[in-house]
Simulated assay, not measured.
Amino acid sequence: MTLSSRVNSTISTKTALLMASSLFITTPAIAKYEYSPFKLSVAHVSTGTADVGNDGNQLKRNVWMMDLEASMSINRQWSIGASVGYDNLDYGWHVNQDSDIITASVPWDSINRYEVGLSVNYRPNKHWMFIASPKMQYAYANTASSSNARSYGLVAMGLYRYESGNSIGLGAAYLNDIEESKVVPFLAIDWQLSERWSLANPFQVGFSGPAGLELRYQLNQDWDFSVGSSRRTQRFLIENDDITVEIEEWVGFLRAGWQLSKSTSLSAYAGYYFGGEMNLSSPDITEDIENQVAGALAFDVKF
């Protein structure tokens, strides 16, 4: 769960690490994860009201996110995965003065984001795993058409697993977003620091940014707590002539996770967005976003 976005549509870094672990194990006794082929995630994020620019305009965001992932091992060396997702981003504007980014007469206040991704995973030996994940996304506001809102990309990663079970890897995401192409390098990690402490990636890698880092504390079998941060990006079409809005910001968060059963979990987040900017592609205008608090709930079920 991303506190405003998941880095969409390919298999998540966390899921990739889980699949890697399930392929690397040689006996059930050393399995670190309980593998399940399907995972359904539902999350809701709500932010506080923030000033945008210097015209007195304010923005409050509410986001619903749904994602379904599937994975399957073909043999000891090959596995495949797929994911589909839908997000609804409700942008509640209070327009004090019309600007190039937002007007009271025609506000863009609802964004739809559809995502689909595939993954191919290859394990040549007991230590190495290589992952390639193509992805496609449509992200557009209520003032634009979906036909002009397509983005696509490829995430590639090499992952090394030590005898201890710890995993670390490097990767890069090539993203051909709406009217912009970029490459995002990232670090993939799942590292047990001690019996209770571990370091891992909280987010997926893709259109919404890198994977971030999260320090976790396992209190007992049912409860864990963590603190983390990452740079996040949202880019979507607001007019059909390839006019986009991009939001870039940092998010820091505290998380409490409750393992309801072997297959279901619930996480509560308290977050803080800071260093945010909103950019309009044409004309090229950037306005600062005031720092704001956020809260989120995420429910996962594996089956």
Rank of each mutant, 00 (worst) to 15 (best):
I102V: 15
T103R: 07
T103H: 03
S105I: 11
S105A: 15
S105P: 07
P107W: 01
P107V: 07
W108R: 09
D109T: 05
S110I: 08
I111V: 15
N112F: 04
N112E: 07
Y114P: 03
Y114I: 01
E115I: 00
V116H: 06
V116E: 08
L118D: 09
L118A: 13
L118M: 11
L118G: 14
S119A: 10
N121G: 07
N121R: 12
Y122A: 07
R123A: 13
R123M: 10
P124Q: 07
P124R: 01
N125D: 15
H127T: 09
M129Y: 01
I131H: 03
I131K: 03
A132Q: 01
P134N: 13
P134C: 14
M136W: 02
Y138A: 14
Y138K: 13
A139T: 11
Y140A: 00
Y140V: 04
A141P: 06
N142I: 13
N142L: 10
S145V: 04
S147C: 13
N148P: 00
A149L: 10
A149Y: 02
R150Q: 14
R150F: 01
S151R: 03
Y152D: 05
G153A: 02
V155E: 00
A156W: 12
A156F: 12
M157P: 04
M157N: 06
M157Q: 14
M157D: 10
G158H: 09
G158I: 06
G158C: 05
L159I: 13
Y160F: 08
R161W: 06
R161F: 01
Y162D: 12
E163K: 12
E163D: 13
E163F: 11
S164G: 04
S164N: 09
G165C: 01
S167N: 11
I168V: 15
G169E: 02
L170I: 09
A172Y: 01
Y174I: 14
N176H: 09
D177V: 00
I178P: 01
E179S: 13
E179C: 00
E179K: 02
E180K: 15
S181N: 15
S181R: 12
P185L: 07
F186H: 08
L187I: 15
L187C: 08
L187E: 13
L187F: 12
A188C: 05
I189C: 03
D190W: 01
Q192I: 04
L193S: 11
S194G: 02
W197D: 05
W197P: 03
S198I: 06
S198C: 02
L199H: 05
A200I: 04
A200Y: 06
N201A: 12
P202W: 07
F203Q: 06
F203V: 07
Q204K: 08
Q204E: 15
Q204W: 09
V205W: 08
V205H: 02
F207C: 01
F207L: 07
S208P: 00
S208E: 05
S208G: 15
G209Q: 06
P210S: 06
P210C: 09
A211Y: 10
G212V: 03
G212C: 02
L213D: 00
L213Q: 03
E214Y: 06
E214T: 05
L215N: 06
L215I: 14
L215S: 08
